[in-house]
Design a protein around this nucleic acid. Structure first.
Lengths: 218, 218
DNA sequence: TGGATGAATATTCAACGAATCGTTCATTCG
DNA sequence: CGAATGAACGATTCGTTGAATATTCATCCA
């Protein structure tokens, strides 16, 4: 690791520790600089701003999750359905655990996601790669019949959105969330097995592309 | 309709109109009282507070939606899959339309949902009744194989959460949302047809009830 | 006596000045 | 000469305060 890279990591570690303790808004660049034994100005040699430090922390954590999920998806001797199940629950548990470990880091993640919408998309995209892998394994083994894996992976992310950032949408405890996720899993897995083909919209009335403008209240 | 009920409705109508125009926080009880030709204090004979008036507006609108969805679910000459499709898209369109018609009423709904979490649950519960009806029709016709309709209805609501309050979670335009909903529908309908039985969790590793505490980062 | 009033009171809100913080850059250090 | 500093600047946040607003209640009307 090159010297400036070392410094970058030192800053990230110090920031993560301080922010986890005091929160993003309550940690100042001056304090962070002190933790790193440098001047505030010098931080800007390594990051172009405070938000970039927070983004780096998120990116690191996101990479860890992606790596873990990839590992989970590749466990030997599992069916594709089991891999899919492992994937969903590992994801829920790691994000939930992160939340419980430090509400402050969640607050930070929320700020980053708000101010840098692109970053959130990027994370979804990485996760989707693992999902596609699982779908393709299922197709190969004959368990699944998924034609467009990219599209179906996107839809799975839509359907499990409630579990991606549990703390943002609901205030349910982990066991309730797990029960719900189990239910959603069961429906999704039944669909994956039966196969997804763009069939059966709803012909005569209300075709998918139509806008409803004329109706008032009925 | 009894006399006090008439007054209640007059207040609700006036409040809805004013709030749609000026927003919840910007409409005062004094103004609302003037609109109704009464004193501010008298409003408290009919509603125990400002928030209760807002809740009444929401409840009315929610009842209209429920009625409309019930009607949609009961259209003659449709398959259960088509009814399910109609239901999902009608719901998305009406909520989206409400949003476009008046951002102010959405702001109000958001306040009510935040301050009165129970009310939101109640709405979900009403909607679930219609969902169950559709599932049962599908079971009767042999299209679906859903054992526990209450449970599956809940899971469908989890999986379509992203589309329930589009404005809250995402900023996607209607056509993007419809495309995503179509995809989620296709997976769900495949699952409903194949049948949902609480099968295939993931035996050896990571059983559903387990908490993950020991893992650090891997 | 049930229903409405509007003045009185408690709470919320918004504006503004003061202080803090993120960021920059001329200067110093090694 | 590259790397680091820390004082200076402008933007943002924060606490305070006074006005506006929700709510209550003693009083009045029909």
């Amino acid at each position: 690791m090159t010297e400036p890279d070392k410094t970058r990591h030192k800053i990230i570690a110090a920031a993560k520790s301080r922010i986890a303790h005091y929160g993003y808004t309550k940690t100042t660049m001056a304090e962070l600089a002190q933790d790193c034994d440098m001047s505030p100005g010098n931080l800007y040699r390594y990051f172009s701003g405070k938000l970039d430090i927070a983004e780096a922390i998120c990116r690191q954590s996101s990479a860890e999750t992606a790596e873990e999920l990839t590992k989970v998806a590749a466990r030997p001797g599992r069916t594709a359905a089991q891999r899919f199940h492992d994937f969903l629950f590992e994801d829920l548990r790691t994000t939930f655990q992160r939340l419980e470990n430090s509400l402050k880091l969640v607050e930070m993640a929320h700020i980053v996601a708000t101010e840098r919408p692109g970053f959130y998309q990027e994370g979804l995209c990485n996760e989707r790669k693992v999902l596609r892998l699982i779908l393709e394994m299922g197709n190969a083994s004959g368990e699944f019949r998924v034609a467009d894996t990219e599209f179906v992976a996107e839809m799975i992310q839509s359907a499990t959105m409630k579990f991606s950032y549990p703390q943002l949408f609901t205030r349910l405890p982990l066991d309730r969330l797990e029960r719900e996720l189990q239910g959603v899993y069961e429906i999704l897995i039944a669909g994956l097995r039966a196969g997804i083909h763009a069939s059966d919209p709803a012909p005569e009335l209300a075709p998918p592309g139509m806008r409803a403008q004329q109706r008032e209240t009925a």
